[in-house]
Design a protein around this nucleic acid. Structure first.
Lengths: 148, 148
DNA sequence: TTCCATGCAAACTTTTTGCATTCAT
DNA sequence: ATGAATGCAAAAAGTTTGCATGGAA
């Protein structure tokens, strides 16, 4: 296995290898704890620290993605009808957007899946105008909770 | 202000009223802590407990939505190319879906916003087939981390 | 007068981190 | 030999909850 990471140098480890294998062989989008329990038999001294550390490394290497991604804080808004969010990965700001493609999307998904679909969420991730202007090197992302 | 909630009976409270007003008057999608700090001057004895309790009530009443919604756990997958998730609000299961409408969506958003858009996320929320079959009354959602 | 909401603090859940040790290179 | 990865435990971060008191209906 080779990494796609540019900066850091990672060694191989049996735990990380297995974490990726387990994750690759399931469709259930598990939690870290599920992976931990799954591999605990194999590595009786495995710890959650190792699982989390390796998941983050695998994400950094581009092998894994995290589903609830973005801020570590919940964010709230007084708007309940479906709309689209633009999330800046540099400053964390969230802005609203109305796009016409939202129309009919639910019906289409309903037909395809048999799901009783009640709502959807569409989010775009990238770099916002403001951050593009201050064209700095990508630093550690500041937490933006709207308090600029 | 009247509630749209069916079951519970809520009274009015100055704190809750102001939380909704503050949330309605901003576009920054704040964190609970932002709201807390914003209202602390007005209610010097305000506590985070009250903010969270009221946000949950407002969500229950349908006035507010939470952005990072779904499981309280992060979920992981060994799939990094963009695709769509179907999230069951009853059992928490997450399944993948490929839909053609994803094509071109990024380009469209880029033109509209000036964002440097790197990726997007589309999620549908509803009730999955399995849960529709066991047609039970909507109970407290079980945490599904793939360990059925 | 009832019982929902508050403030406060403690508890809880999930994730991260410090440190000594182990292991891959 | 070097320093990345591990296991363990403690800490951090975000959210929820128990309880006595206060306040809306």
């Amino acid at each position: 296995m080779e990494t796609t990471s540019k900066e850091k140098s990672y060694r191989q480890s049996r735990q990380r290898k297995r974490i990726l294998e387990v994750l690759s062989s399931t469709t259930v989008h598990p939690t870290a704890d599920w992976i931990y329990r799954r591999l605990k038999k194999e590595f009786p001294r495995l710890s959650m620290g190792t699982v989390y550390r390796n998941l983050n490394i695998l994400i950094d290497q581009g092998w894994v993605s995290k589903i609830h991604f973005g801020s570590t804080f919940d964010r709230f808004e007084a708007r309940v009808e479906p709309h689209t969010h633009l999330i800046c990965e540099r400053c964390g700001s969230i802005t609203d957007l109305n796009m016409s493609f939202e129309k009919g999307i639910t019906e289409k998904a309903r037909k395809l899946t048999g799901f009783d679909i009640r709502r959807h969420r569409i989010e775009f991730f990238g770099i916002c105008q403001k951050c593009l202007v201050k064209n700095r090197s990508p630093k550690k992302r500041e937490k933006n909770d709207g308090n600029e």
